[in-house]
Design a protein around this nucleic acid. Sequence first.
DNA 1: GTCTATAGTTCGATAGAC
DNA 2: GTCTATCGAACTATAGAC
Lengths: 211, 211
Amino acid sequence: MTNPIPNASATVPGGQARGDATRSRLLAAALDSFAIRGFHGTSTRDIAQSAGMSPAAVYVHYRTKEELLYALSAAGHRHVLQVVEEAAAMHTAPADQLREIVEQFAAWHARFHTNARVVQYEMAALTEEHKREIASLRRAVEMRVRAVIASGVARDEFTVRTPNTAALAVLSLGIDVARWYREDGPWTPEEIGQRYGDLALNMVRSSRSAC
Amino acid sequence: MTNPIPNASATVPGGQARGDATRSRLLAAALDSFAIRGFHGTSTRDIAQSAGMSPAAVYVHYRTKEELLYALSAAGHRHVLQVVEEAAAMHTAPADQLREIVEQFAAWHARFHTNARVVQYEMAALTEEHKREIASLRRAVEMRVRAVIASGVARDEFTVRTPNTAALAVLSLGIDVARWYREDGPWTPEEIGQRYGDLALNMVRSSRSAC
DNA sequence: GTCTATAGTTCGATAGAC
DNA sequence: GTCTATCGAACTATAGAC
């Protein structure tokens, strides 16, 4: 799995390679600050200093601070949607699909927790137009999870009585990982994914109804 | 259930009643702004204007903007801990206790979603000392949920293999309500509580193991 | 306890040299 | 594309009159 932030060093030689590398450094610096202090708690001077350049140099690459946030939010949202789509495509049985989706979704929020914090908690700082664009990516993720749960219910493999609420709930499990995850914590992203995948399957298969 | 923000109108006549009423107005104004724009996205001028006073008048009642945040965060945390303790005390069977806790916890995050947002997403803006004090209240909530799940596992009423992860997960369900809840949404806080209570019970009683 | 006025700092963003 | 220098606005918080 690749990093959600496009890296200039992966682009073809020549062309915009050097400029792209600087943009990547800026994105990485902004991501760290936004994740720790939030968009409004971060100054453009903070970002410039982390990226090793003057405050003015930032504006050669991004016209506003919000544009930096948008680039990070969009890249993260597109990446997480791709991860969810690929997880669903790996299986045909709804139970396998749901487990895989939750596993990858939760692991993503741990592995890329700084980007995940920006994705999940800084949407309010986007311009209205950017907010709308991001919202459609989020809708796509939710619809994918709803479809998997609905198909499991239709096949009588899931017994949950409120499938759309269950979709929201399994997404909440993964999203909240971005809030509490610490790199020096006791679990790896993969372990978190596995445990949450199990719990999510339990959620949609009520023990009462199944017995 | 009372409001998490202490209201001056409930205090005895005389004494600090008038001053308390002004403090309550300030707290309410700060809460609204912090919930929508975040601590760093809110200026003391915003708060003063919402409360109908001059920017300078704020400082008669609170010495810093952070002190306002701390008052809101502490009141919210103390309230949610009380709600969880009372929910646990209502029952003796772990299944009933867990359902009641999750029901009340999730409903609280919907009913008091502005306070919940401050409680869950603005901790980083507190001073180190205030952060430590709040952290101990949060620990108390988590330990209470862990104890209920552990007792259900000990009695073979719950079959979950990772009880502490399950405790974290059921709390995540409730906490994330603060992020997505809208007052004009399709569900009442009570409905959310009931549905999430069901889902949480499913989580700790794996259908596979039970059958 | 409220106000007007403002000190002193920091903010986002720009100008212009190299 | 980077820098130094800075503009104009907004910020937290305080001073002092009433």
